[in-house]
Design a protein around this nucleic acid. Structure first.
Lengths: 158, 158
DNA sequence: TTTTAAGTCATACTTTTGAGTGATTTTGGT
DNA sequence: ACCAAAATCACTCAAAAGTATGACTTAAAA
């Protein structure tokens, strides 16, 4: 029982197409009789049939063919900025404080010590102390090295 | 002249289909005459035409329709280390030379001017000149800014 | 051949960075 | 209230970075 219902629902389209075809054939039969009786030109009749069935064929083909699926691979660049999470383990292990991390981020953004001092409302000397302590903890000798290493250790974003 | 050639080559397929159709129609005319003469059943003749033109319609539809393209977006994770290609357009636009690019890469790797000079077997002053020119072209004022901007412009890898 | 751009190097000078040291103040937790 | 870490700042000195200018060589392009 269930199987039968399943069959009908699954082939609903095909069945409806079949029915349409049958109706069309009956229509043609009727047309044929009329034309034969009225004795019109056979060419017109033939032409009509040809056109109708050409159209039917086109319609059938368009409806029944599966879409030719073309899979286009589209590159989606995943920017690490979107998914960056600082490696807190590294930060704690190295004993880097919040303020130092802040300074580190500004250094990596390309700011000079003076600019960082202005942004954080502290003196230039303070920033120098922070950066110096930072270099010690990161075991580097310059700001560019610090940035390179911090990015490598995922302490700051890339 | 060129236009005409262009027209024929561009519509080659459509034209060949049209010719096929014409040939088919002549064939039918011939069949019609034979059937009329031999006085066979009209139903068979009609049926044959219907089938032929249905087939023609299907064939036409299949040949002429563009494939229904389904674009499937596929996420491709690009690891910058594996697949970095320098943005040559930016490099050319800024007029950065090979040597300057080389210096830029070493700067971003965290090397000092002296270390870079040693690696490239040139003098410290030469590296200073290169980096100074580089900063001018990148419109920055320090090596850290240069690194930041160059990475942002995809001139060097991250 | 002349011109042009790239690369090299030097000198003189200024600015920035970084090391080392020491000191004071905040802050958070026991 | 006390302690320790964090944060602040100053001062000096040295090294590195950066600017400006000019000169020389070479290779490629006009």
């Amino acid at each position: 029982m269930q199987v039968a219902v399943n069959f009908f629902s699954k082939h609903k389209q095909v069945i409806s197409y079949g029915l349409s075809l049958a109706i069309l054939l009956f229509l043609l039969k009727w047309l044929e009789m009329r034309y034969v009786i009225i004795n019109h030109s056979l060419e017109i009749y033939i032409g009509a049939i040809a056109m109708i069935f050409t159209g039917l064929g086109i319609w059938l083909a368009l409806k029944l063919t599966k879409p030719k699926t073309v899979v286009v691979e589209k590159e989606v660049f995943i920017h690490s900025e979107d998914t960056f999470y600082p490696n807190n383990q590294s930060i704690e292990k190295l004993g880097i404080s919040r303020r130092e991390l802040e300074v580190l981020q500004l250094i990596s953004a390309g700011f000079s010590n003076q600019e960082i001092a202005d942004q954080l409302f502290v003196s230039l000397n303070t920033i120098k102390t922070h950066s110096s302590n930072l270099f010690g903890k990161l075991d580097v000798k310059s700001r560019t090295q610090a940035v390179e290493k911090a990015k490598r250790l995922n302490i700051i974003g890339k």
